[in-house]
């Protein structure tokens, strides 16, 4: 149980996917302008990360490893994720139109999001059990959510700021991201020590 909590908290705070591992930078910079789109995108990412792990983990363990096909991991995972996202979108459109309206537009974008492929591959590389892998995916998704929401707050302050001309747009956004990520450096070592007896 302690291990699961450590995995969860360190995925959210220490190894934050966006601010520490640099995965999913495109949506982080592109969709974080407004709080509601940032929230929608992050919820869609959490959702897709969880189902992608739930599907790719058994495929790796029960299909690829017994048949010595580990080298197909990259191709299989990206195809499974792409197909899965399409499937989820179609199902959601048919049965949950309200949810589709708020999350649906972000779903196709996630197919080529490196955070989702990254979390599925990392779960295998780290040698997690299925439960640990699911917890790690949840933590990674929550970390993404936290970073997106925090950063959309920072960006709304940037809107009114007087910025040198050549820094307008992306450069100042990156500098702001740098400072946001600096705040996460402070968490290093905290989680492990919390449970160290």
């Amino acid at each position: 149980m302690t291990k699961l909590i450590i995995i969860l908290l360190s995925a959210v705070f220490i190894n934050n996917y966006v601010l520490n591992r640099f995965l999913g930078i495109c949506p982080f910079l592109g969709v974080s302008k407004k709080l509601d789109s940032a929230t929608g995108m992050s919820l869609a990412v959490i959702f897709v990360m969880l189902i992608a792990t739930a599907v790719t983990y058994p495929i790796q363990m029960y299909l690829l490893v017994p048949n010595q096909l580990e080298y197909l991991q990259t191709i299989v995972f990206i195809l499974v994720i792409a197909a899965l996202v399409q499937l989820v979108e179609i199902t959601m459109k048919r049965y949950l139109p309200a949810l589709h309206k708020s999350l649906g537009v972000y779903l196709p974008l996630i197919t080529t999001n490196c955070a989702v492929l990254g979390v599925t591959i990392l779960n295998i590389d780290e040698g997690y059990t299925f439960l640990e892998a699911m917890v790690n995916s949840l933590g990674s998704g929550l970390g993404f959510f936290l970073a997106m929401v925090m950063f959309s707050g920072v960006r709304s302050k940037l809107e009114g700021a007087d910025i040198p001309k050549s820094f307008k747009g992306l450069p100042i956004t990156l500098v702001a991201a740098s400072i946001t990520s600096l705040s996460f450096i402070g968490f290093g070592g905290v989680i492990e020590n919390m449970f160290a007896k």
Binding site: P164, S166, P171, L174, S181
Partner: peptide, 26 residues
């Protein structure tokens, strides 16, 4: 570390914006 990556990247883009002839696109 991670913050330095964002910072240097932002700086480089700002330099490119400064010296490129066309205005940074919206």
């Amino acid at each position: 570390m991670a913050p330095g990556g964002f910072f240097v990247f932002g700086l480089l883009i700002a330099i490119v914006n400064k010296f490129s002839k066309h205005k940074p696109r919206k």
